[in-house]
Structures are given as C-alpha cells and as structure tokens.
Simulated assay, not measured.
Amino acid sequence: MRLYVLARNPTDSVTEGFLPAARGLGLDVTLLTDQPDSHRRDHPDLEILECDVRDFRAVISRISAHHSPDAVFTNSDHLQTQAALAAEYFGLPGKDWRAALRTKDKAQMRRHLAASGADAVWAAELPAGHDPAELASLDAPFPCVVKPREGVASEDVMLVDGPEQLVRRCAEIQARRPGAALVVEEYLAGELCTLETLGDGRVRHVLGGFRTEVSAPPYFIEERLTFTPAHPPPVVDQVLAQLDALGVGFGACHTEFVVHEGRARLIEVNYRAIGDQCDLLLAQLLGIPLFEHILRTHLGEPLPTDLGARTDGRARLDYPCARIAGTLTAAPHAADVTAAGGVRLTYRPLRALGERHELHGTNRDFLGVIRATGTDQAAVDRAVAEFLAAHRWEITP
C-alpha cells in the first residue's frame, strides 16, 4: 500500500514517529516536500519528491503523475487542509477540509465557534497589507493577545496592554512576516492545558493531556508540560463539544485550552499529533502504538474501541530555553538515564554547540528537551530537577 506523507521541514514526529510506524506497517512511503534536501540528509533511502506542498493542486498533480495512493497524510500544521483536499480528491479517508481550514485559520475558528453558539471570544482581524493604525480605534478588552492568523508554535504571539502597544506590535510582526494577516483577541485567563484525542470518525479516544507552564509576558513560550491522565470530566466534555462544533474528530488532534472557574475555552486547535517530542513521550507512556493507530485511520481502518492504554503513567517535559541571543558554548550531550523510583529520563539537544541564534520568543529558543516518565509524579519531578541542577547551558553573546 502506498502512503504519501506531506511535509515541510523535518520534525521529530515524522522522523522518529510516523516513518518508523509506516515501515512497521509495511507501507511504501513517498514523501512530498518543498524542502527535499533537508529530508534526504536524514532519509537517503526514502523516496522523496519535490513538490509545492502548500498548494493542494500541486499535491494532487504530483500524486496523479506517480503511483496510485492508498493514503495521504501530514502531521504539519501548515498542510492539513492541502492533505485533506488531496485525500478527498482521490476518494481516500481523511479529515474534512473545512474542519482543517477552521482550525488552521484562527480568525475563522473564532467566527465559527461564535456562530455555532459554542463559545464567543472577542476578536478582530487585520488583513494582510493593512495599516495597524486601523486597530487603534477598536473597543478592545485590554490586555489582548495579537498573533498571526495562521501561525504556529507561539511565534509572534504577544500580550499587549493598550492601543499604542497593539499598533506597535502589529507593525513589528508585519515587518517580520510581510503578507501575514493578524488576529487580535481577548486574553483568556486560566490554567493552560492540552487535550490529546484520536478518532476515526466513528469513535474518539481521549488520550489524556498536559498542564502547561509558559514564560513570563509578553511571550507565551511553553517551558514545561506535565502529563495528566484525565482532566475533570466536565472540562473534557466542554472541550469535546467545541471540537464537535468545529467538525474535528478524525485522526490525531492536539487542543490547547484554558480553564477558569470550571469553564474551558479554546486557545487553539492543532489538527495533528502534539509535537516537540510530546507525542514520542505519549506513545511510550501509554504503551500503545500511537503512530501506527494514527496512520491506520488514514488507511481507512477502524480504531479499536479499547486502545489498551496504560493509565498509571506520569510524565513531565522541560525545555531549557535561551534567554539571550548568541552562541551556545556549553550544554549537555544526549542522555538516557534511569533515575530513582524507576523514572526513565531522556535528554535530547535541539541546538548544536557552536551554533549562533537570535532570540525569537518562541520554541525556536529551545536548547533541548528533557522527557521523564514513571508512575509517581514526585519521583518524575525530582529526576528532572536533579538533571537540570547537574547540567548547564551557556550562551555567549
């Protein structure tokens, strides 16, 4: 069976998760990408075809001129709508392209949730090329959050305190992202959480979620995630109802939301598996072939009604983060450690020694990722704290 995977830059999710899963399922894989050289360095034996994957017409044309597809899949935030349209064109299982578009376009998500009666969040849109000064007259409920309409990974997501700062921040983002439309929306207070789901259009499994700690304002860099096997049922029900309103229910979905006084409100919906190595941790923690399950849904296979997932797992991820621009001059090497209490700890560097980087205010500032799993949260937390205390990350301006 032939699986087409759409991708832009290489990611751990594809390299360590989906490609090994596809091999395990015996699939013939063709990778379509607009960055072929970067993928060929990591996968010299993989069939890689260059394609403007941002254009669904180019994707359909490239597949039509090659082997007949059995599945079209992507785990990229940027390519969900394109993959959904291509799958529909070839009559294959896939996500509803409308739902993929609603979740990718943050302004459309807010409009759709409000129109459906699921939730109403004050929001306004600054179209591409428009003067940010247009926003000065808005009756906005400050503080507000400004972000790219179709952004990812908290890039250029900032808290603003008033009209002047709003106009200034929008101008700064436009300078970095010419042609990008922006969204301004009310700041939603509360505990930041995630919900991880997997469905086949018939059944939907809730895999648990994370509680997320972010950096100090004005940025929203995710610095620590702590796994929770189950959020309170009323909270889960509220989130699932909003996902239903958006039409989300096929394949993997990573939903970010806040809870305040028992009310759950969506921050954003990433219609794909959670990234930044959280999906690798989740598969290990739950003891299920997560990536295989996701691919099987796109092959048209029903999910089991019981995934057989473990429920006793506890976990935490920490991301040592750059605080200044400069060259990384000291950092630990990759490590796999068994700590006290049976905790399994993995550290993987995300930036090489000697590399110089600017400061981005996003997850591109991550220097590495620490993943720790066990059955006792206190033991997991101690293992991470001890690893952080025993190592240093230094940046020379």
Rank of each mutant, 00 (worst) to 15 (best):
A7H: 10
E16G: 11
P20W: 10
L32I: 06
Q35G: 09
Q35N: 05
H39G: 09
E47I: 10
L49T: 06
D52R: 13
V53Y: 00
V53M: 00
I60P: 00
S61F: 07
A65S: 12
D70W: 01
T81W: 11
L85Y: 02
L85N: 00
E88N: 15
K95V: 13
D96G: 13
M109H: 07
R110E: 12
L113V: 05
L113F: 07
A123H: 15
D131F: 00
A136K: 04
P141D: 07
P143E: 00
V146T: 03
R149H: 14
E155G: 09
V160G: 03
L166G: 08
V183P: 01
Y187M: 12
G190V: 15
G199V: 01
R211I: 14
S215K: 01
F220Y: 09
A230G: 00
P233V: 05
F250W: 01
T255K: 06
H260Q: 02
R263F: 12
A264I: 07
G275K: 12
L285W: 06
L290T: 01
R296L: 12
G300E: 05
E301N: 04
E301T: 09
L303F: 06
P304M: 05
L307W: 02
R314Q: 12
C321T: 09
T338I: 03
A339F: 12
A340M: 13
G342P: 07
R344N: 10
Y347D: 00
L350P: 07
A352M: 15
G368T: 11
A378P: 15
